[in-house]
Design a protein around this nucleic acid. Structure first.
Lengths: 196, 196
DNA sequence: CGGAACCGACCGATCGGTCGGTCTGTTTTT
DNA sequence: AAAAACAGACCGACCGATCGGTCGGTTCCG
């Protein structure tokens, strides 16, 4: 009796998104066929295509949903946190937090964007670029206010790589693992970007 | 007249390895079918299967060849460089150098190991683990001799992620890009691992 | 001649996707 | 209130295309 509209209508769609992300993260997008996907989710082929127009559509939605989430959080940080050093820390801890809560989906974002058809891919890459631009602007702002070392594209990529790679080894079920990762990364952030 | 055995016999095989790595790096292993691969290399299906027993065999050989190369270099560093700080720098610069010279192959190693059949995958993962163990032992040695900060698995993964991610943005045609990447990473290595 | 290199038509399996149809629950008409 | 009309959720047999892989045959060279 606990509702029909809010409990079941979007629930099945979200269930597919989540289950597909788990499968794709573990075995790769192209390696998981529709038969396997539907079987794992106890879904008929028809039921799947009732919710999504194509396999690519499903992948795009996973990527778009989480890249949008990341970008949204970054924009919020930019709007709310004027201090570059604090904002950088916030960008990092939010990224780790999303990876901790949705590792599979982020794995798909980071690893399977390449599997999207050209036009769909461009849209996701644009979101990704916008996200990284906020990191970049933060480093440049910090340089201008004198708290950060001069900006370098190489240093930015080094920091991003450190965060991005974590989806491959972090344990999302351990809050202490996530916390320690964040603490370690924060200290590296400071050691690398703060002026001596 | 410049030889037949050394110039042509392994040459075509190597040409396939190299061309396939380029294609797989750009579009993903499962996305490139045998028809496309053979067409791009101006090869008949039959000619390909004269050199490799299967598509998986080709992928495994790319991964094995370069993970072995990486591991070999790391073992050499370990044997030849007793000082942990210098050895760490050497491990890093060798990794960047290999990525600079064989970006596509390393991209396949890092991104497509997941596409291998289970048994083949295990072998590659073992090589990868052995490689990372040398980094780990170097950090631990440095801690024991007092030059490095106490060992932390999170810090190790942070450093490796920084290096691994570089295949996605580095420009292998620019020697100055490779040099600057290496310089930047070296300074981060020092800032993060050296005792204050 | 023997054998490595190579060719390309062909194979069964599987791919992503479609489509006619069923079932259930709600809304409208009488 | 009963009947008719409708709409969304879901089913699974089926489609053409393409997948990775095979094989009998040909070419070429030592």
């Amino acid at each position: 009796m606990a509702s029909k509209k809010t409990d079941e209508h979007p629930a099945n769609r979200d269930r597919i998104l989540k289950g597909a992300a788990a499968l794709y993260a573990r075995r790769g997008f192209h390696a998981v066929g529709m038969n396997e996907l539907c079987a794992a989710l106890e879904l008929s082929r028809g039921a799947f295509y009732h919710y999504f127009t194509s396999k690519d559509d499903l992948l795009e939605e996973i990527c778009r949903q989480y890249m949008t989430k990341l970008l949204h959080l970054a924009k919020l940080s930019k709007a709310e946190e004027p201090d570059p050093a604090l904002r950088l820390r916030r960008l990092g801890s939010e990224l780790i937090s999303v990876i901790g809560a949705h590792r599979d989906e982020l794995a798909v974002c980071f690893r399977e964007t390449i599997s999207l058809a050209e036009d769909r891919r461009q849209g996701i890459l644009a979101l990704h670029a916008a996200y990284e631009r906020i990191w970049k602007e933060t480093l440049i702002e910090g340089e201008k206010t004198g708290v950060f070392v001069p900006y370098s594209r190489f240093r930015l990529k080094a920091l991003l790589g450190m965060y991005y790679y974590s989806y491959l080894w972090i344990d999302p079920t351990s809050t202490s693992s996530i916390r320690q990762t964040n603490d370690t990364f924060e200290s590296i952030l400071a050691a690398v970007s703060t002026r001596p």
